[in-house]
Amino acid sequence: MSNVGIVIVSHSPLVAEGTADMVRQMVGDEVPLAWCGGNGEGGLGTSVGAIMEAIDKAWSEAGVAILVDLGGAETNSEMAVEMIGEPRASRIVICNAPIVEGAVMAATEASGGASLQDVVATAHELAPA
C-alpha cells in the first residue's frame, strides 16, 4: 500500500487499541495501521521492541507517522526509530499531537494519499500552541 502508515504508541494497551479502533472506523483498511502499549508484563509503559514491531507492521514506502501519549512513549519511539536506522528512519516521524485526535486526523489525511509531510502537518495543527 502506498498510503502513509500510522503507528499508535500509548502507555496503556487499552488506549492504544481503542485509538486504533477509532482510526479503523474512520478510514477502514485504506491506511496501514499498528498499535502497541504496555510494558510487556501487563503493566503500563512502552517497549522499544514492541514499537519497532509496530513500525514494521504499519510500514509503507510512503513513510510512517507515529502518535504517542506521554514523554516515555516519545523517548522510546525515538530510540526505536534510531535502531531501525536508515534508509527507513528518515521516513518515520513522531508527531507532536494529542494521541487520539492526532491519530484520527493523520489517518484521514493519509487515506487520501497525502505525503508523510502533509500527514504530519495535519497532526501538528492539533498541538497546543
Binding site: G43, G45, G71, G72, N76, M83
Partner: peptide, 10 residues
C-alpha cells in the same frame, strides 16, 4: 533499552 519499559530505558 529493550527491557526497562519507560523513558529511563533509552
Amino acid at each position: 533499552v529493550m527491557t526497562v519499559g519507560g523513558a529511563s530505558g533509552p
